[in-house]
């Protein structure tokens, strides 16, 4: 599955967003192909925000399924299951 990765700007994040994404990418392995928001052919967007404000959430493209994270409480494996709709 092709997933677009997008971070909020990170003005005052409550956790290390980059490290959290790396853990998610490790948990996903080859099941997810990561792309940029501008890239074609994505089925979902993983938006990693640093806090509850989730500044950029409203700017996400309407056609794509959005998974928006505001903290690092979910285990990476669970995030992958949500992205792959295996909840």
């Amino acid at each position: 599955m092709r997933v677009a990765l997008k971070f909020c700007g990170g003005c005052d994040p409550g956790y290390e967003r980059g490290e959290y994404w790396q853990a998610i990418a490790r948990a996903a392995g080859p099941e997810i192909e990561w792309a940029r928001l501008e890239d074609q052919g994505c089925q979902a967007v993983l938006l990693i925000c640093g806090c509850d404000t989730a500044c950029v959430e409203d700017d996400m493209p309407p056609g794509l399924r959005l998974v928006c994270l505001r903290n690092d409480r979910l285990p990476p494996r669970v995030v992958v299951d949500i992205l792959l709709q295996r909840e």
Binding site: L5, K6, F7, C8, G9, C11, C55, V56
Partner: peptide, 8 residues
């Protein structure tokens, strides 16, 4: 950096 491009 992807983690900050939205602001930067």
């Amino acid at each position: 950096r992807p983690e900050s491009e939205d602001l930067a």
